[in-house]
Design a protein around this nucleic acid. Structure first.
Lengths: 229, 229
DNA sequence: CCAAAAGTGTTAAAACTACACCCATGA
DNA sequence: TCATGGGTGTAGTTTTAACACTTTTGG
């Protein structure tokens, strides 16, 4: 059923930059395109926004359809509206970024039968469209936001060690941190709660597991506390 | 000439939150709508994105057409895509915010014969659409960004006194700052340059005028310097 | 018993906060 | 000469940065 308008309209899409962390690197999820344009090339997951869904809904739906990822941290990043982004026609895309912990989520090839895979940020293929720029913008946002908002926890399982948390900061900020100072700072903020569990299956002394105490964080924030690492 | 598409498309607009500062308050520019829906109500300047212009271009054009403002600091804020934002049909809007100094820019009623005016943030009328939410988001962004990016200068004339700069911070952050500490900090960063001019027409000792040294700021930033007030 | 990472305190330097007075100018 | 805001320094406190050893555990 065709739809007609008095003035030409841009197509509207969402694209999502999904970050995760492995032992070494920051990783990003890409899918291999099976359609023109850029057939065979890697691209960010995403797709057209339906007229009856919000932008957030659209981003979550596309992510679910193309990668199987669900219930993850998702935030709007920036809207890209260059004239030649897509060789076919004018397409404006609302970009999102998402954070997941690798252990809790299995990625699968999608309903669209596209190939979905993780890539290290240090070894990226050429990307379709202007997706390299979107990815770069997302990376900058993540780096900038990590220090002032408690989003690093989203890259970890629910229970994590302080070393794991430190690793998040070291990888994303790309610099080493002092272990003692880091622990002092994190524990001093009182927004992580010790569980009575410890690491399993490690060939050395097992570390305590902590949990992000969101309620406490919200309470403190309301009182003027500002997260900063 | 009508345009037909296989799937329904949202209309795409831009809306701009223009901030300025007077002696007292933070101000925002609003226009009075002369068309349904919300005829007669106040709203943010903005309008439809043409298919052959980028989002930034669109925002600047609308601003120029509706308020006469040109050559001002403009930055994308957030994209609002709720289903019922506009009672007529699905409209997605890319919101921007802008900073101007009142002295340098005269606002005029526009080509659309709408009434454009400044309102104090402390005394706002009801706004059309979801513009109150957009305005609130912009205000939060401004507050958050002011401390970490040198955007406060955009609210001042090219040459300004340190007191004026302090006033920007006090009004936007809504708290008083210590004069000596503020000066120490600003001068210590070495990103404002003394001119050899002083204030005019004041009934007391005239203050030195300074200028934001963007080149120096860029140089320092490249070397890892982080602006913070 | 060895390898590996967990866990822990102190000190010096830097940054921040609070605070009060004299100075220059125009009316 | 007076009212007004411009301009300046210091001391106490807090925060940050640098740094090394002992403990626990599994292999």
């Amino acid at each position: 059923m065709p739809h007609t308008y008095e003035f030409a309209r841009a197509a509207l899409t969402v694209d999502i930059v999904v970050f995760a962390l492995d032992e070494e690197d920051l990783q990003v999820m890409l899918i291999q395109r099976d359609l023109e344009p850029f057939e065979g090339q890697w691209a960010l997951p995403g797709g057209f926004v339906r007229v009856d869904e919000t932008l957030d809904e659209s981003a979550r739906r596309e992510l679910q359809e193309e990668t199987g990822l669900q219930d993850i941290y998702l935030e709007q990043l920036y809207t890209f509206g260059g004239l030649k982004r897509d060789p076919r026609e004018r397409v404006v895309t609302v970009a999102y970024y998402a954070l997941v912990n690798l252990e809790g989520h299995n990625v699968h090839a999608s309903t669209d039968a596209r190939n979905a895979a993780w890539f290290s940020m240090n070894d990226l293929p050429d990307l379709a469209f202007d997706h390299s720029m979107i990815l770069q913008t997302a990376h900058e946002r993540l780096r900038g936001k990590l220090r002032y908002q408690p989003i690093g926890f989203e890259l970890l399982p629910e229970k994590f060690t302080l070393r794991q948390l430190q690793h998040v900061y070291e990888v994303v900020l790309d610099r080493e941190l002092d272990k003692r100072n880091f622990r002092k700072k994190v524990l001093g903020m009182e927004i992580v709660k010790e569980t009575n569990e410890i690491e399993k299956d490690v060939a050395h002394r097992a570390a305590k597991l902590y949990r992000f105490d969101k309620k406490k964080y919200d309470r403190l924030t309301k009182q003027g506390f500002n997260f900063e690492i």
